[in-house]
């Protein structure tokens, strides 16, 4: 029994590892830079638009210091001292986590987990580089699979209940994204529902709407398996990126999209993770610019600000 489990685990580790000769270290160095850039931009978002809550008010000067330090670490990651950059970025990020406490966004926890791994393991050492890519890939698959599993276990996606709720109570982005799949009369009924006990039902009699709802969690459950298998890896990875982009159209959580896309890109061969670094960096700079000047750059990508 233990022998079988060991064989299965080593097969899993093998699937998560990169084939010999792949440009592992350069890919991981690129990921390390983008991760630090992500944490940096997210930190600046708290400086640009501070949280308005007596319980969550970050010390403003502290936020600036934390953001500056993490930005310096992101720049340091581009130099030959890149190995120490995630180690130096950990204390300021831990300060931010301590300030946000229970309210820490899930995406920040994900970034923290990745940063812990990149601070612990050196991509330039062969053994540690392999373990680092295995760890980061495993985290990616766990998060993707868990989002689908949680939808399955909570049971509000089988007949589109959650999406119907968001059509009723969510922002206009939800209505403009999913409203096309819902008959006008149903949309009118949903938007008229209030918060009184027994209000509802939050269901829509529309086959495409129910299919889309079920497709969402099924994709989240199946994609990790298809990404793990080498034969379907490239197609599943590309599909996953498109899927991630599509599901951000309503909640507008593009900060998460960039972080998770960088993680998913680690599965692509031929160093695509590194090749797309300039594009990803531009994405982060655009997010930062939009956060600072939504009047100039639009607020389409910054509705959620990475705070969910």
């Amino acid at each position: 029994m233990i022998g079988i489990a060991k064989r299965r685990l080593s097969r899993l580790a093998e699937l998560l590892a990169e084939p010999p000769g792949a440009p592992l270290a350069r890919n991981l160095r690129a990921f390390r830079f983008l991760l630090l850039l992500h944490v940096s931009v997210q930190s600046w978002s708290y400086v640009i638009t501070p949280i308005r809550s007596a319980h969550l008010e970050f010390p403003y000067a502290g936020s600036i210091v934390v953001s500056t330090l993490i930005s310096a670490c992101a720049l340091l990651a581009l130099t030959r001292y890149g190995r120490v950059a995630p180690i130096l970025a950990l204390p300021p990020l831990i300060c931010r986590l301590a300030w946000s406490g229970l309210w820490t966004p899930n995406h920040t926890v994900l970034a923290f987990a990745c940063l812990l791994l990149t601070a612990t393991l050196d991509p330039d050492r062969d053994d540690e580089g392999v373990l680092l890519v295995q760890g980061l890939r495993w985290i990616t698959l766990v998060v993707l699979f868990s989002t689908g599993l949680q939808k399955l276990l909570h049971g509000c996606w089988f007949r589109g209940e959650f999406l119907a709720w968001m059509l009723s109570k969510g922002t206009d982005d939800w209505r403009s994204t999913f409203g096309l799949l819902v008959p006008a009369s149903e949309m009118e009924r949903l938007t008229a529902l209030d918060y009184r006990p027994g209000s509802g039902p939050y269901r829509v009699d529309s086959v495409p709407f129910i299919l889309l709802s079920n497709f969402t969690y099924l994709a989240e459950l199946l994609l990790p398996v298809l990404i793990l298998l080498r034969r379907t890896r490239v197609a599943a990875t590309l599909f996953a990126i498109g899927f991630l982009l599509a599901i951000q159209l309503a909640p507008r959580e593009f900060m998460f999209f960039l972080l998770f896309t960088n993680l998913v890109l680690l599965f692509l061969p031929c160093g695509w993770s590194r090749r797309l670094t300039p594009l990803m960096a531009c994405g982060y700079l655009y997010l930062l610019a939009a956060l600072a000047r939504p009047d100039l750059f639009g607020d389409f990508v910054i509705k959620a600000n990475g705070r969910i």
């Binding site: 309210w103 899930n106 495993w138 998060v143 989002t147 949680q150 939808k151 909570h154 959650f162 969910i308």
Partner: peptide, 30 residues
């Protein structure tokens, strides 16, 4: 890897908020 399942158990037993505490259950329920 185990935390999302622990998180689900905590939601069921103590009604913690599924959207919080990194159980990856955002957008599962209102």
């Amino acid at each position: 890897t185990a935390w999302p399942l622990v998180h689900r158990a905590l939601v069921a037993a103590f009604e913690i908020n599924p959207w919080k505490l990194a159980g990856w259950a955002m957008f599962c329920v209102p």
